Computed example of a mutant assay.
Amino acid sequence: MTASSPPVLPDERLAAGIARLAVRHRGHFSPETIQRLVTDSYARLAEPARVHTHLVVLAERLTAERLDALAHIGGAPGSGLPRVLFVCSHNAGRSQMAAALLAHRAGGRMVVSSAGTLPAAEVEPVVAQVLTEAGVDLTDAFPKPLTDEVVQAADIVVTMGCGDACPIVPGRRYLDWPVTDPEGAPIAVVRGIRDEIDAHITELLASLPST
């Protein structure tokens, strides 16, 4: 195998997702580039995973997000919708809540994503529960690793307890929300964390220009 050859697929079922993404991004990204990203996404997700049943599907979804970020980076400066990225350690609690609440309230006016510096195997069930109570669906959410493309594509990066592991990219607007980690907390506490995050989001939305 030469240095330029795409990596061997860790699961042959990934080929179907690569083909779908190649059609969607024809003329922008080569199938070889997509295969490298899919293979890398699969490896990143497999590391913390306890159950590998859905890894093929999740690798395609993560790759789609990374390709969207790369396309945004390659576009004209300031083009497209504002992009907000929430980062915490495990992407299983705070950053998932923040991303879901902002996406719900923004109503399609911005691109919202989240990631973790050390992603967990799954989203905290109590986090999904308190969001459901607020009318926000977290069914399809999964902890995602932080990748360079998503950071570089963001206009605003909100850090939430990841400390020195949080990325710093020149020219981005950075906010730090010192919110309590909901892991292992009783549901009443997690509801309070949800409401605290929602208050931060109200302030963030008020600070943004109308779109």
Rank of each mutant, 00 (worst) to 15 (best):
T2L: 14
A3G: 01
V8P: 02
L9E: 06
R13C: 03
A22G: 13
H25R: 11
F29S: 08
P31C: 10
I34F: 09
V38M: 15
S41R: 05
Y42L: 01
R44W: 03
L45G: 09
E47Q: 06
P48I: 06
H52I: 09
H52P: 00
T53F: 13
T53L: 05
L55T: 05
V56P: 02
L58G: 00
R61E: 12
L62P: 07
T63C: 15
A64W: 02
R66C: 09
A69N: 11
A71H: 08
I73A: 15
I73G: 09
G75N: 04
S79K: 00
P82N: 04
R83V: 03
V84S: 03
C88N: 07
A92D: 00
G93P: 01
G93T: 01
S95A: 06
M97G: 12
L101N: 09
A103V: 01
G108Y: 09
R109G: 14
V112D: 00
V112S: 00
G116N: 05
T117E: 10
A120R: 02
E122F: 14
V123Q: 02
E124I: 11
E124M: 15
V127Y: 01
Q129G: 07
T132D: 04
G135V: 12
D137C: 14
T139S: 10
F142E: 10
P143D: 01
L146P: 04
D148W: 10
E149Y: 00
E149G: 03
Q152G: 07
I156K: 01
V158G: 01
D164A: 15
L175Q: 15
W177N: 03
P182W: 09
I187F: 01
A188R: 15
R191N: 07
R194C: 03
I197C: 07
E203Q: 14
S207D: 11
S210F: 10
